[in-house]
Computed example of a mutant assay.
Amino acid sequence: MADDALAERRTLDGRLIERLERPALAVELGLEPHPEGGWYRRTWTSPATVAVGGATRPAATLILFLLPTGEASGWHRVSSSEIWIASGVGPVALQLGGEGDEPEPGETIVVGDAGEGHAPQAVVPPGAWQRTLPADHDALVSCLVSPGFDFADFTMPDVDGRTP
């Protein structure tokens, strides 16, 4: 196996979570492992900026997010609004967990092909807990965050960002 076929998933502070093989679609799209699970790459950053808590941020950012078969993301929250947008490769089950101190499993929204009865988009309010659930297929979505995403505004309840 070529070295570029391997990747390292790390915590926000850089500790190694796991070494893993890059899925073919992650290689094709140039995606990297996300600390929460799944694979991602920022594809756009707004040239407009906004002030957020004394810092300057892009008005919005956009990523591609891949969940390979059987993979999920752990409970996490972002202090900005997040919009999940179907990108044509399998639906993804997005579970919301409220806005309390700890996530409480709640509504699940399946983001995917509207022609198959799925939501083509889903909005996660600022500060709401969210996670994705495993599926028997690959799923690809785009996620738009406004104000723009910054790991400083990203919270995960456990050390490696994933719930067992």
Rank of each mutant, 00 (worst) to 15 (best):
G37D: 04
G53Q: 08
G70L: 02
W39Q: 10
L62A: 14
L64M: 09
T45S: 15
A60R: 00
G53K: 06
E36M: 08
E36W: 09
P68I: 00
L64R: 13
T56G: 05
G38D: 05
I63Q: 07
P47M: 12
F65T: 05
G53L: 06
I63L: 12
L31W: 03
R57P: 00
G54N: 01
E71L: 06
A60C: 06
L66E: 06
A48N: 12
W44E: 12
G54F: 04
L67Q: 09
A51M: 12
P68M: 02
A59P: 02
W44D: 12
R41P: 03
P68Q: 04
T43I: 15
T56V: 15
P58I: 09
T61G: 07
T43N: 06
E71H: 10
W44R: 10
P35Y: 04
L29Q: 03
L62P: 01
P58N: 13
T45Y: 02
V50M: 09
G53W: 07
L67G: 08
P58A: 15
G70Q: 01
L29V: 04
E36G: 02
E71A: 13
A60Y: 00
T56I: 13
G37Q: 07
W39N: 06
F65H: 11
L31P: 08
T56Y: 08
A55Q: 13
L66C: 04
G70M: 01
P33D: 05
G30T: 07
L66S: 04
T69L: 05
T61K: 02
I63M: 07
I63F: 07
L29T: 03
A59R: 10
R57I: 08
H34M: 04
A55L: 12
G38V: 02
H34T: 03
A48C: 09
G54Q: 06
V50G: 01
L66Y: 03
W39R: 10
F65V: 07
R41W: 09
R41N: 10
A55N: 11
G53M: 06
L31G: 02
G38L: 03
L29E: 08
A48M: 11
R41D: 06
